[in-house]
Simulated scan of single mutants.
Amino acid sequence: MSKPLNAALSEEIAQRLSHKAKTSFDNAYEAALLIPGVTYVQGFLVLPGIPYKPMEHCWLEVEDAIVDPALPHLNRAPEEIWYFSAQRLSVKKLKAAIEEAKEDYPEDDPLPVYGPAPYEYYGDAMLGGKDYLEAFQAAEAKCRELNQSELDRN
């Protein structure tokens, strides 16, 4: 079960970011550097309606709640957003993974962090391990549940 979204803290953190990054991964990374004791989480986001499929997304966990610095850009009420975690990283491990990625693959964006191979297939991608596959499948099921009537019409 996903932790509840703390919308007020998400909005506050989004306001504190020095710039609006292009991706949820960049926003969550920047926010993770501002907030002590957070966990950086990668996984999938499900919203009712278009795009009718899970979206790869990133957020933070603080104690018993989700903090999503991208919340203001989602244009949804908190009760219309579902999070499915695939990987959790401490800020220390996240920084180390980013440094390693920059060193090993300087031409590529270091985020998201997928961890070691072997990778599983999910959707149209082959990234992440078994945890990614399981999170994607759970998110896909929730997406079908939320959008079944719309999907039946198409």
Rank of each mutant, 00 (worst) to 15 (best):
I81W: 03
P54R: 00
A31Y: 03
K92D: 15
D152Q: 13
A32Y: 03
R153F: 13
E56W: 09
A86I: 14
R88E: 15
D124K: 04
E134Y: 11
Y114R: 01
Y119Q: 06
V113E: 06
E12F: 05
H57W: 04
E11W: 11
P4S: 09
C58P: 01
G128D: 07
L9D: 07
E134I: 14
P106K: 11
E61H: 03
Y29G: 02
E145D: 14
I81N: 03
I50P: 00
L60I: 07
W59M: 02
N6Y: 03
E103F: 13
A101P: 00
I13M: 09
R76E: 15
A141V: 05
V38Y: 03
A135C: 07
R88Y: 13
S24A: 15
S90M: 11
E80P: 01
I50V: 03
R76G: 11
L74T: 02
V67N: 05
D124Y: 03
G123Q: 08
K142F: 12
E100G: 01
E134M: 12
E107T: 11
R16P: 00
A117R: 08
Q15T: 10
R153V: 14
V38W: 02
L111C: 00
P118S: 00
V113I: 15
L34G: 04
A7N: 09
V41A: 00
E12C: 01
D131E: 14
P69N: 07
A8T: 14
R144F: 14
A14E: 05
Y132I: 09
A138K: 13
A8D: 14
V38P: 01
L94A: 09
L60M: 07
E56C: 06
L9Y: 07
E140Q: 13
L17M: 08
S18Y: 04
K53A: 12
D131P: 02
Y40F: 15
G37H: 08
S149V: 15
A97K: 01
S10H: 07
E145K: 10
A96K: 14
E30G: 01
F25N: 12
R153N: 12
L5T: 10
E107P: 01
N147E: 13
W82D: 14
E145C: 07
L34R: 10
R16V: 01
Q148P: 02
A139M: 12
E107D: 12
L5K: 07
E61C: 05
F44W: 04
L94N: 10
P51K: 02
F44P: 00
K95W: 08
K3P: 06
L17A: 08
K53S: 08
Y83K: 03
N6F: 03
G43M: 11
L133H: 06
H73E: 13
E11F: 10
A86Y: 10
Q148S: 15
A138H: 08
I35S: 00
P106N: 12
D104I: 09
K142A: 15
G115R: 03
E145S: 10
Y119N: 05
N27W: 01
F44I: 05
A65N: 08
A28W: 06
L74I: 10
K93F: 13
R76I: 12
D109R: 04
P78I: 09
T39G: 02
Y29D: 10
P106A: 13
E134L: 15
A97D: 04
N6C: 11
E79N: 08
A21C: 10
E100R: 09
Y29E: 12
A65E: 15
D131R: 02
W59G: 02
L60W: 06
L127V: 09
I81T: 08
D108P: 01
K20F: 09
I13C: 05
P118T: 00
S2H: 07
